[in-house]
Design a binder for these strands. Structure first.
Length: 222
DNA sequence: TGCCAGGCCGGGT
DNA sequence: ACCCGGCATGGC
């Protein structure tokens, strides 16, 4: 018995192939990228991360103690740069101060407890926390983002009014509880979203989910 | 040119 | 419990 979302997963995987997310070289880089990508195009984040790499700063202790203004300049291409410099340092300080800068120790903690700790960091919300848990810690937390919301709602699979928790519950109940599936599905939703489900696109010409649209159409609040 | 992108927070009702 | 403005760069 296959859910609607599983059907969508199969089609997206067939059309786009494995995405192999997160696009980063290390778990620490995943954490950095997860903060920098907040409401920002990934293209801009790549430059910021490259700046950090060239400066030899992809390191928790160094990031944590760097002057905020210097960090801000380096990550400028990612936008909201003063804000994100502070957020990034808040996150790095959790890692350094509570886990002695050891990702192994951090990811050895109880995942739900760690999620609460991440959420307690100013600047880390649910999506960012779940992205870190899924893509850095390899724990089965489904990552909900704007594309998840738009794709699911436009197909009538969930209310437009649904909040993060509702979307996450929906996805985890319709998909196998499997890190690899959560990993791929989120990445695939971003991919299909970017190509077929942006704010303006009338709808879904050539989208692999085209024939799964509701026949009567769905009204969008925006 | 204006709108948009892989959010989150803080203040106001 | 909502609702909203602010935060900022680069691409189309």
């Amino acid at each position: 018995m296959s859910s609607t979302l599983s059907e969508a997963y199969n089609r997206l995987l067939q059309r786009y192939g494995r995405q192999g997310w997160w696009p980063a070289d290390s778990p620490l880089e995943v954490m950095v990228g997860a903060v920098l990508v907040q409401n920002t195009a990934w293209r801009n984040v790549e430059r910021a991360i490259e700046n950090l790499r060239e400066a030899g700063l992809l390191d928790a202790r160094r990031l944590a103690k760097l002057h905020a203004a210097e960090l801000a300049e380096l990550i400028r291409p990612a936008g909201y740069y003063r804000l994100k410099a502070a957020r990034l340092q808040n996150l790095m300080r959790l890692l350094v101060e509570r886990y002695d800068a050891s990702l192994e120790r951090m990811f050895d903690a109880d995942p739900h407890l760690l999620r609460d700790e991440l959420l307690a960091v100013k600047g880390i919300g649910r999506e960012t926390a779940d992205a870190i848990l899924l893509y850095a810690a390899n724990q089965p937390f489904f990552v909900v983002d704007a594309y998840t919301h738009r794709v699911l709602a436009r197909h009538g699979w969930i209310d437009f009014e649904a909040d993060y928790d509702a979307l996450q519950s929906h996805c985890t109940s319709e998909l196998p509880n499997d890190v690899a599936v959560y990993n791929e599905m989120h990445a695939l939703l971003v991919e299909v979203g970017k190509t077929h489900c942006t704010k303006k696109q009338p709808l879904c010409e050539g989208c692999p989910l085209e024939d799964m649209l509701p026949s009567s159409g769905v009204q969008e609040p925006w």
